[in-house]
């Protein structure tokens, strides 16, 4: 399959998923009513359901997923390991810890921008720590263990914050960030994260060609003309921005950054650079579909998107890990 065909197919799937997200829900809306609402007609009630509830929520799921898919593909290319991903490496957890800290200290009142900024600072701190570790440890498996440690530490600090939560409202709020959800998202939330996400995507796009050359290892990549320091900076800052933006939209959602690149890789001849865009689209589609599932699931308490993503993704992670041949490390 050519790259263009693949991207077109995934984009079509994305649009279909977004349309389905508008149609499906607790109040059934027909195609005619959704179309009318989208075009500005229909009843005010329909317009609210479509424009202020379903569409922003689905767009949030798509955006958060796409950011994680691209971040995962980029980190896997940089670290040359299919198990690298913002969630596994503790980047998402650190970002959501920082966001939770903002809630805990009641800083959200100081400005809505603080939340995405905190999430992004958290994500950048984690990716920077990982890069320093990567330069020191040499072995990718050790690096992933460092990431798992980072993830546990962030989880422990998060548990501490939850433990000390001043009141049930902030506890519920903080829990949402930990579990990951796109419920009640508005286009304003997306607009807040958009500049960070956009710059992250630009940096990743600038660094993508180096990822192909890194297939040969750092020494040979330097030999064929890759500026290693620049490539690392682009990918680390780019994934930090994108993952931070994703966490600020949806909280910590794991594993989608592993699964999506893994699925598309064979379709792009395993080229790390060409994995980025289709992995982003697929991860977006996966989260939109998973969120439709969350909304339709007949449970008393709504399932959190992050919980569902982990339930689906974690077994895939184990499967990929178990299948890896010894020679790979």
């Amino acid at each position: 399959m050519s790259d263009r065909l693949l991207l077109a197919a995934l984009a079509a799937a994305g649009l279909t998923a977004l349309a389905a997200a508008c149609l499906l829900g607790s109040t059934p809306l027909g195609v005619d009513r959704v179309l009318a609402a989208l075009l500005g007609g229909a009843s005010p009630g329909d317009r609210i359901v479509v424009w202020e509830i379903r569409l922003p929520r689905a767009a949030a799921a798509f955006t958060a997923g796409a950011a994680l898919g691209a971040s995962g593909a980029a980190l896997q290319g940089l670290l040359r390991n299919p198990l690298a991903e913002p969630g596994v490496l503790g980047v998402s957890a650190t970002a959501s810890l920082a966001a939770t800290g903002v809630i805990y200290y009641g800083l959200v009142a100081a400005g809505a921008f603080l939340m995405p900024i905190a999430a992004i600072v958290g994500a950048l701190t984690a990716t920077a720590l990982l890069t320093v570790a990567a330069a020191r440890v040499g072995s990718v498996v050790t690096l992933i263990l460092v990431g798992v440690g980072l993830s546990s530490l962030a989880g422990a600090l998060m548990a501490l914050l939850l433990n000390l939560a001043p009141n049930p409202f902030s506890l519920a709020d903080m829990l949402n960030w930990t579990l990951g959800t796109v419920a009640n998202r508005s286009f304003d939330d997306l607009a807040l994260a958009a500049p960070f996400l956009g710059s992250g995507v630009v940096l990743l796009a600038a660094g993508r060609r180096s990822l192909s050359a890194l297939t040969l290892g750092e020494e040979a990549a330097a030999g064929v003309g890759v500026d290693l320091a620049r490539a690392r900076r682009l990918v680390v800052v780019g994934t930090g921005l994108a993952t931070g933006a994703s966490v600020s939209i949806a909280g910590a959602i794991g594993f989608v950054g592993i699964v999506a690149p893994h699925v598309v890789r064979p379709l792009v001849a395993h080229d790390p650079a060409r994995t980025l865009a289709p992995a982003a689209l697929l991860a977006g589609v996966v989260l939109v579909v998973a969120d439709i599932g969350v909304r339709l699931a007949p449970t008393d308490t709504e399932l959190r998107l992050g919980v569902v993503a982990a339930l689906l993704g974690a077994p895939v992670f184990v499967w990929i890990a178990a299948r890896r041949r010894r020679s790979h490390d």
Binding site: R80, N81, R209, S212, A213, L214, T215, L216, G217, E219, A220, A222, G223, V224, G225, V226, R265, A269, H270, D271, P272, H328
Partner: peptide
């Protein structure tokens, strides 16, 4: 051009694509 001593290949690229990396 430089051919280092250790020659890992992280992903199962096609031979043509691996050689194409020489044109980076």
């Amino acid at each position: 051009a430089y051919l280092p001593q250790s020659r890992p290949v992280a992903w199962p690229l096609r031979v043509r694509d691996l050689v194409a990396l020489g044109r980076f």
